[in-house]
């Protein structure tokens, strides 16, 4: 159970909207959790699903980073640790999905370990909306990423919000699958080997 606590907490944070709200929500949810009956330990539930392989990888990566605090901060290490530098959004929306939050959690974890690294948060939008509206939407997406990071303890001064709107799509085909890839937010480290010039 103790291992589950951090992920539960981040789950609670997902629904918070501001730092002021945060403490209250945190407290409330903690009380709720205490009132819940304890679940049987997983090792006795023979039919229970196996833990998702992704979180096993995450643990391995975390453990390795913890074992070796001198792991140099490189773009490659960030990508390996966070598994992806890119999150996706729903059409016209800047709301962070559960999957996006999980990715940002890993990115935030890495950024916390490398407190001298700065990042550009770049919001992008699909080709199906008007250009300048999509540009503002890109900023909204990047701002949502920045807010999430700052709530998770990354100083806002390390984060630069930018937007590319629909100016730099990863896929120009007009079908839905292609366009869904363009609704994205990217975390780009700056000032590191293999990163854009500072």
């Amino acid at each position: 159970m103790t291992q589950m606590t951090p992920s539960r907490h981040s789950g609670i944070l997902r629904h918070s909207r501001g730092p002021a709200l945060l403490a209250a929500v945190f407290l409330l949810m903690s009380c709720q959790r205490l009132a819940q009956p304890l679940q049987p330990p997983p090792q006795f539930a023979m039919q229970a699903p196996q833990p998702a392989p992704l979180s096993v990888q995450q643990d391995v990566a975390q453990n390795r980073a913890m074992r070796d605090p001198d792991t140099p901060a490189t773009v490659e290490d960030f990508e390996r640790y966070a598994r992806t530098t890119r999150i996706l959004f729903a059409r016209g929306s800047a709301e962070l999905s559960d999957a996006a939050r999980a990715t940002l959690d890993r990115q935030a974890e890495w950024l916390k370990r490398h407190s001298d690294v700065r990042a550009v948060l770049a919001g992008h939008a699909d080709l199906l909306g008007p250009r300048e509206h999509q540009f503002a939407l890109g900023e909204r997406r990047a701002a949502a990423m920045k807010f999430y990071f700052t709530v998770h303890g990354i100083s806002g001064e390390r984060l630069i919000v930018t937007s590319f709107g629909k100016e730099r799509p990863v896929n120009a085909s007009s079908d839905e699958v292609s366009q869904s890839q363009n609704r994205r937010g990217e975390t780009i480290l700056i000032g590191l080997p293999g990163a854009p010039r500072p």
């Binding site: 800047a94 540009f135 503002a136 900023e139 909204r140 701002a143 949502a144 937007s163």
Partner: peptide
Amino acid sequence: FSLARDGVA
């Protein structure tokens, strides 16, 4: 021009 800040333009 338009200026976007903290999700508002």
